[in-house]
């Protein structure tokens, strides 16, 4: 269980203008700005929940996650994870959590992942037999066969990410912080990893906090989302409800040869290619529009929620508007 109350994290950053004169001046006189990376955020996450952490770049997501993992000290506020204060870095706490950062790796570069696993086994004081069993399970679920004995630098990005996950989960943590775990991976690998995370969450009743810029990850994994922008929490709740609230429209796609003005009366045209038309329709008019399309012999009818990207864009745009 994760409990955050009034979290603030401020950084003092040295601002320097470009150019030689400014560089020389900075030798003896430095100006500092205060960056409020996280400004008064509160939320509670129960054991076993899967929560998506959304927001534009620089919103404060990674900062919050690092505070939760104990890597950063909060400037103000209280943070409790599994009954511990993360900043104290109590070994008992560190054994319960894991942080996976998609952009940084913990695998030793010149050596096979198996060496990193050996290190983690020793570091977490794992019983060798138990660890071997865990590794066996992970190997099967993630498809690591043949990978763990090759030097990390010889693995592809997707293979490396799978091995990273295994290294991060060897000690069977019950709280997972995942910071862009699928970044740079191909679609098939993203699906594999999503499925794996869901599976792990269900098997171990593990709490999952996920950041991702791939909305598909969030849609697939997280029933609940917390949205952060500019260090502020602007939404915390059910994902579907958020989508409905922000954009109470549906996307209707169909194939039909209809005149443009008729289509325009049905709804706002989003895409029109090779006879396949996608229009945005307010939910209230959905029945009417679908009926109309079917009457006019439209085929391959599909009704979808608007993409999460659109929702996010609207959310941030709304928030930022003066």
């Amino acid at each position: 269980m994760i409990e955050v109350v009034g979290l603030r994290k401020h950084f003092r950053v040295h601002r320097r203008k470009p150019g030689l004169a400014a560089a020389v001046r900075s030798l003896w006189h430095r100006t500092y700005d205060t960056v409020k990376a996280v400004d008064d955020i509160s939320f509670t996450i129960e054991r076993g929940e899967r929560v998506g952490f959304l927001g534009p770049n620089g919103a404060g997501k990674t900062t919050t996650m690092k505070v939760l993992a104990g890597l950063l000290h909060p400037s103000a506020g209280q943070v409790t994870v599994e009954g511990h204060r993360p900043a104290q870095r109590d070994p008992a706490f560190l054994e319960r959590i894991t942080l996976v950062m998609g952009q940084k790796q913990q695998l030793l570069w010149d050596l096979p992942p198996s060496e990193t696993y050996a290190l983690n086994r020793a570091v977490f004081g794992l019983d060798p037999a138990a660890a071997a069993r865990t590794l066996g399970e992970l190997t099967e679920l993630l498809g690591l066969a043949g990978l763990v004995d090759k030097p990390t630098r010889q693995l592809s990005l997707g293979e490396r990410m799978k091995c990273e996950l295994a290294a991060a989960l060897l000690h069977q943590p019950t709280t997972l912080f995942l910071d862009e775990p699928t970044i740079g991976l191909d679609v098939a690998m993203q699906v594999t990893i999503r499925d794996f995370i869901r599976d792990y969450n269900q098997r171990h009743d593990a709490t999952v906090l996920l950041t991702s810029h791939y909305m598909d990850d969030v849609v697939a994994l997280c029933p609940r989302v917390i949205v952060i922008d500019g260090g502020h929490l602007i939404h915390d709740g059910d994902l579907r409800a958020l989508v409905k609230t922000m954009i109470p429209d549906k996307l209707v796609s169909f194939t039909a040869a209809l005149p443009a003005d008729e289509v325009a009366r049905l709804g706002e045209v989003v895409k029109s290619e090779h006879g396949r038309i996608t229009i945005r329709v307010p939910e209230a008019r959905l029945r009417e529009v679908v009926g109309h399309v079917l009457d006019r012999a439209g085929t391959d009818l599909a009704v979808e929620d608007p993409p999460l990207e659109d929702v996010m864009r609207k959310l941030f745009h709304t928030k930022r508007a003066p």
Partner: peptide, 13 residues
């Protein structure tokens, strides 16, 4: 060269 000097000043440590 000017950039080099700027770099050198920036990385004075």
């Amino acid at each position: 060269c000017r950039i080099g000097l700027t770099e050198a000043v920036a990385y004075r440590a």
